[in-house]
């Protein structure tokens, strides 16, 4: 189960995220769980794989907004890097960036089971 402490340990700026949820911990945690289930994580990987950078950018951009609002560091930093590369439609090796993002996500996924 994801807890405030776990989020803090993983690097999230819980104070900022909670503030945007008017200090309601349960509400904040429920949104974090919802964010981890966001389809855009899957879409992003797929679209980068097929080099459909337009669709990949949209997915990354959406995730950036959500992760930013929940202050889910370090995932937010990773998605910002990916978003900016995709905004420029850079044909680079995205694997290291995706790996970092999904490893960070995996920590929280594990906790939320």
């Amino acid at each position: 189960m994801i807890t405030i402490d776990l989020l803090k340990e993983s690097g999230a700026d819980v104070e900022s995220g909670l503030s945007r949820c008017m200090g309601m911990e349960d509400f904040y945690l429920s949104l974090v769980v919802k964010a981890l289930q966001d389809d855009n994580f899957t879409v992003l990987k797929e679209k980068i794989g097929t080099k459909d950078y337009d669709a990949a950018f949209e997915a990354a951009h959406a995730l950036k907004g959500v992760l930013g609002n929940l202050s889910l560091e370090p995932m937010y930093t990773s998605i910002c890097e990916i978003t900016e590369l995709l905004r420029a439609r850079s044909d680079v090796d995205y694997e290291p960036y995706l790996k970092a993002l999904y490893e960070q996500k995996a920590v929280l996924d594990e906790a939320s089971k």
Binding site: R20, C21, M22, F27, L31, A35, A62, V66
Partner: peptide, 13 residues
């Protein structure tokens, strides 16, 4: 907003 979380958050505010 197409993102549920963003909508919910603004509504809460």
């Amino acid at each position: 907003d197409d993102e549920f979380i963003n909508r919910e958050m603004l509504e809460a505010i």
